[in-house]
């Protein structure tokens, strides 16, 4: 299980949006250990508000949160024409939800708990997409 390092020379910025603090903190630690720069947000609104100051290279959004859901955030970004690769994560995996999220144009949909290889692989995909555009 070899650690996968980020491909970009500067540390890419990853936004983690989850209303559960322990998850938020653990994901920030894990990604930080892998040399990513991590911003954490406790709600979708907090995350949207932060976009005025800086844009992340990739956002990991919990689907079910108090207030705006991960999907609501993704929709608002699409409406505001802000293109950030989005990875939706959920503890309540449903095939129908997966279909809907992918149809909405998110980069990926992952069921919790998140496995490191799969997550880092998807983040790298996102970063490649960013640099390509």
């Amino acid at each position: 299980m070899a650690p996968v390092a980020p491909v970009a020379p500067v540390r890419p910025l990853i936004a983690v949006v989850d209303d559960e603090e322990s998850v938020r903190r653990a994901l920030a630690r894990m990604l930080g250990a892998l040399q990513f720069e991590v911003d954490v947000f406790a709600s979708g609104q907090e995350f949207l508000d932060s976009l005025r100051t800086r844009l992340p290279d990739c956002a990991i959004l919990d689907y079910r949160m108090q207030g705006l859901s991960g999907r609501d955030v993704q929709r608002q970004l699409a409406l505001a024409n802000i293109h950030i690769p989005i990875i939706i994560v959920t503890a309540h995996d449903q095939p129908a939800l997966r279909e809907q999220c992918l149809a909405d144009g998110v980069l990926a949909y992952l069921a919790k708990p998140l496995q490191r290889e799969r997550l880092v692989g998807l983040i790298n995909d996102a970063l490649r997409l960013r640099s390509a555009s």
Binding site: A26, A111, L114
Partner: peptide, 14 residues
């Protein structure tokens, strides 16, 4: 799934 996510993330980071 939520605590497992946190445990896993912390273990990976450690």
């Amino acid at each position: 799934a939520q605590p497992l996510t946190a445990i896993l993330g912390n273990a990976e980071a450690a």
